[in-house]
Computed example of a mutant assay.
Amino acid sequence: MLAGWLAKKICPMVFTDEGLRAALLPRCRKLKIEPPGRMDRIVGAGRARFERKFCLHVLNGLSADSARALWELATGEDGFLQELKSDPGRLGLETLLEEIVKLRRAKTLGLPADLFGGYSDRLVASWRALAWSRTTEITDALVDLLIGLVSKINTRAERKVERAIAAEAKKVHRKTEKLFSIAEASLRRPEGTVRQVVFPAVPGGEATLQALVAEAKADAKTFKAPGAHRADQLIFLLLPADAAQVAGRA
């Protein structure tokens, strides 16, 4: 009776023998019986009952194709088992695409979405259901890779624009005075050409005017890359179609 109670009520939540023994004592007090002398045997029996039930539940939830795919994974004939265990490489588009391929292969195992329905995440984690757990972990890793890659692209684009703006934004010394000289020369000889009237009005002539124009353009720009906000869209164009779920989580 005590072993059955442990298997049904306690084992799904408590995963150590010490915890199971601790649960037995108050149960005995509630039933008003003396604690059994062979507590470890009852704990072992309760755990064994629960594990049989748990394994049968998982096994019955697998199709024949899924069972076959898991067997092939366990035998490691194609090396996918080691690949499934591996963590992502360095941040980059190639790593992102490799992880997408890994996720695709994990999904081909065909594990049902409710395979561990009714059981806690802690229990599944304690059994370390590799194929099931890695599917979720790979998806989470893809989200992190996608966010990191978009951030990296945005940062590079911003730096490129900042360098371009810095090159253009060479401040013209005594700009107001030069603009006044241009205006004054233009009013004095309105019939003259730009080359005859405006260029001679400032030191440096045409080069100074070009510097003034460049400075004005630079001031009008923002320090955000024109298209950096589309970096995530660029990534999506490079990803396979089934990466939409990952992109949505990101």
Rank of each mutant, 00 (worst) to 15 (best):
E162L: 12
G46A: 04
I182S: 02
A69C: 07
L239I: 02
G37C: 11
F15V: 04
E72R: 09
L25M: 08
L149I: 05
R230V: 07
L187D: 07
D144Q: 13
D140M: 13
F199A: 03
K32W: 10
L115M: 07
R163Q: 11
A243F: 01
M39I: 15
F15Q: 05
L145E: 04
E72H: 09
A125I: 08
G192H: 07
H173W: 15
G46Q: 00
V198P: 01
I33E: 09
Q82F: 11
V246R: 00
T136D: 11
R38Q: 14
L24P: 02
V101E: 15
K9D: 14
L25E: 08
D232I: 13
A129Q: 04
V143A: 01
S133A: 12
K85T: 10
S86F: 04
R163S: 10
D219G: 09
T108F: 09
L93A: 00
H173A: 14
P35W: 02
P35K: 03
L91H: 01
T95C: 05
P88L: 04
I100A: 10
R104G: 08
N154V: 15
S126F: 14
R128K: 12
K170T: 12
G192Q: 08
E51D: 10
K178T: 05
G205A: 06
A3F: 01
A241H: 09
L84Y: 00
E99M: 06
F236G: 07
L31C: 07
L91Y: 04
T155S: 11
R104S: 09
E184L: 10
G110D: 03
M13T: 13
E215M: 01
Q245F: 15
V197A: 03
A157Q: 10
L93V: 03
P26E: 06
L56D: 11
E158T: 12
E137T: 10
K9R: 14
L24C: 01
G44W: 05
F223W: 12
E77Y: 08
G248Q: 15
T108M: 11
T95L: 00
V202C: 05
A216T: 15
L130V: 12
L24F: 00
L97D: 02
P226R: 15
H173S: 13
I147L: 14
K9V: 15
S133V: 15
A69L: 05
N154L: 14
C28D: 05
R134G: 02
V246W: 01
K102W: 04
E99C: 05
A228N: 02
T193C: 06
K175V: 15
Q233Y: 13
F199S: 04
V197T: 09
R105W: 01
A45P: 04
V202G: 02
T176G: 10
A7Y: 01
E83Y: 05
F80C: 02
R105M: 08
K9C: 14
E206C: 11
D78T: 07
K53I: 13
D78Y: 06
I100C: 14
P190E: 06
I182R: 04
L91M: 05
N154P: 08
D242S: 09
G248I: 15
Q196G: 10
H229L: 15
G19D: 02
L73Y: 08
W127N: 07
D65W: 00
A23C: 06
L103H: 04
E72Y: 06
V213R: 10
I165N: 04
G89W: 03
L6W: 01
A69N: 07
R174T: 08
P26H: 05
L2Y: 00
V101W: 11
